[in-house]
């Protein structure tokens, strides 16, 4: 199955840029890098619908644009519905002969708030209706564009402006909502997690998600120096640590079958990841221990699904 997809690797990535320079992403932004790579993987025959958020704001201030591919933004919460209309519109116009038949990839782009909170209804509807589209969630684990407010994708223990750490609080007191699993529950053909620290893996997944007929969901871990309070040269390292500690495992679910893309025999302690970021600085050993236990448990569940998929 995988053989039919072009594999990206060294010297196998186009030098063409679809996201033009001059955008206003913060220095060291993991999302900007991931977006640029995703666009390269998709090529020029795409239409992108973008939710309100960092990506939208950093790329489209009138009268200029960073987009060299057709791009539309309407609102925050409705990107999956907008792309549904684009996909259905193109399909029927081709069927009726109004526009020529061709392969145009319909891609929705949103952040974690636009996906796991305000946009989840539209996303669930679009996945369930089986539109042929790819949904890319760039997860920087809070509402970064509006100033680091917590979302349901914010990890346990992180300090944000609306769930700040204080004398009586550790910050976020709930576990991160598992969006890839919610996507899997829609029985769609393809779900994957990706991280720009693993650029070829990310590009291959985006390409695969775009090529597959039917809905595909790729959840992209996007380190945010501004919101996570880490040095601007650390996005790649932090992304790698998230994977190596098991906090953000890289996996794919193709037609319900799980596959781990980076499987380390032994996970690094979560502390190595947590200590790189100011948002976790207040955590005491016992909280770090709780996080470690949770990660171990979730990782074991994932491994069990992978094991089940190979039997």
């Amino acid at each position: 199955m995988q053989g039919q997809y072009i594999k990206f690797g060294k010297n196998l990535v186009t030098t063409e840029e679809f996201l033009a320079e001059g955008h206003t992403f913060c220095t060291g932004c993991g999302e900007a890098l991931a977006l640029r790579l995703a666009c390269k993987a998709l090529g020029r025959n795409v239409i992108i619908a973008n939710a309100t958020g960092c990506t939208e704001v950093c790329t489209s201030p009138l009268p200029v644009t960073s987009w060299r591919v057709p791009w539309i933004h309407t609102l925050f919460e409705n990107t999956a519905a907008t792309i549904s209309g684009i996909e259905a519109g193109l399909k029927i116009l081709m069927k009726k002969g109004t526009i020529p038949e061709r392969d145009i990839k319909c891609v929705a782009v949103a952040g974690d708030g636009g996906t796991s909170d305000i946009g989840i209804q539209a996303l669930s509807g679009a996945l369930e209706r089986n539109h042929d589209f790819l949904y890319l969630c760039f997860d920087n684990e809070a509402y970064m564009n509006t100033g680091i407010q917590r979302s349901s994708a914010t990890p346990y223990g992180a300090s944000t402006t609306t769930a700040p750490a204080g004398k009586l609080s550790i910050g976020q007191t709930t576990w991160k909502k598992n969006l890839p699993e919610i996507a899997v529950a829609h029985n769609i053909p393809y779900v994957a997690t990706a991280c720009p620290s693993y650029p070829f893996d990310l590009m291959n997944k985006v390409k695969k998600g775009g090529d597959i007929k039917g809905p595909a969901y790729v959840h992209i871990f996007s380190p945010c120096p501004t919101g996570w309070r880490h040095d601007t040269d650390l996005a790649i390292e932090i992304g790698r640590l998230a994977v190596e500690t098991g906090i953000f495992p890289l996996y794919e679910v193709e037609n319900g079958r799980y596959k781990l893309n980076v499987d380390r025999p032994k996970l690094k302690p979560v502390e190595e990841y947590l200590k790189t970021q100011g948002r976790f600085r207040h955590l005491l050993d016992e909280e770090i221990e709780r996080i470690q236990e949770h990660v171990n448990e979730e990782y074991a569940k994932l491994k069990a699904k992978v094991a089940h998929s190979t039997t």
């Binding site: 609102l75 999956a80 519905a81 549904s84 209309g85 259905a88 526009i99 539209a122």
Partner: peptide, 28 residues
């Protein structure tokens, strides 16, 4: 009628879907 009928999950998505369809030139 040769049309795409999309049974969306809400009115919010009904209008959003119409917006997307109209943006590719479909009569919506």
């Amino acid at each position: 009628l040769n049309a795409a009928y999309i049974p969306v999950e809400s009115e919010h998505s009904a209008m959003s879907t119409c917006v997307g369809a109209a943006a590719v030139g479909a009569r919506t």
